[in-house]
Nucleic acid binder design. Sequence first.
DNA 1: CAGGATCCTCAAAGATACTG
DNA 2: CAGTATCTTTGAGGATCCTG
Lengths: 137, 137
Amino acid sequence: MALSSKDCERISSIFSGKCSQKNICPVKDIMARYGDKWSMYTVLLLGQHHKMRFNELKAGITGISQRMLTVTLRSLEEDGIVARTLYPEIPPRVEYALTELGEGLLRQLLELASWANDHHADIMNARKKYEKKQVEN
Amino acid sequence: MALSSKDCERISSIFSGKCSQKNICPVKDIMARYGDKWSMYTVLLLGQHHKMRFNELKAGITGISQRMLTVTLRSLEEDGIVARTLYPEIPPRVEYALTELGEGLLRQLLELASWANDHHADIMNARKKYEKKQVEN
DNA sequence: CAGGATCCTCAAAGATACTG
DNA sequence: CAGTATCTTTGAGGATCCTG
């Protein structure tokens, strides 16, 4: 199935928009920002639990270092995806939650996830096929 | 607006599915694979022009090196997103085009782009607000 | 023309130690 | 508890030269 004319218009608008003048594609920007090793997982986890403390997140995200969790959360907070609430008690308590904007992003990502799930097999097949072709030559 | 129960189910299925056992989130997989510096741009460009030669792509993607274009195209080809057709003439001619799978991916990305466009201002505002808050402290 | 092969660099991520 | 500060490492990406 070929691309619809509406799709083509959308592509054009991405290239011709003010974003392309700044040489910034909004999709690329989003992907680069949230497509790193940990952001995605963090957003999904926060979507599932609504409110989480620093060490809860650390425990939930296998393999993440303290530093990278901090960096990831700061970046998400900076973009208004995640809200950070500090309770000035001793010992300190900090709670993280998705903002409305973050929930919107999450919804988009779930759409992408659906597509990814539906076509994961296709991609894996393609990879195997490609591998075979390489071995032949 | 809070997340719908359907959204929550989707999140759960991502975490509980076979993908999470392999410690691979399909969204993260997709984002990591196509969220790099050049893949996105390449897919959009191929969506716009349908068939392009190596040097046409190189000319269309400002700043990309020969090597990175090759690497990017190989990766997309490996996943079945892009089809490579070699015409064994002299000098050789190679044409790249999106596959059906690639067009499907492009459609998803356009959805994401729409969201990104609609909320780009929100994100920028959040960044400014965050910056101010940092300066205050 | 469309790359393959090398070498090199720098920034992102990991490890570790310390602190309000 | 929830970080910050510092050092080290790794690998993605750039530059360059070569070729079927």
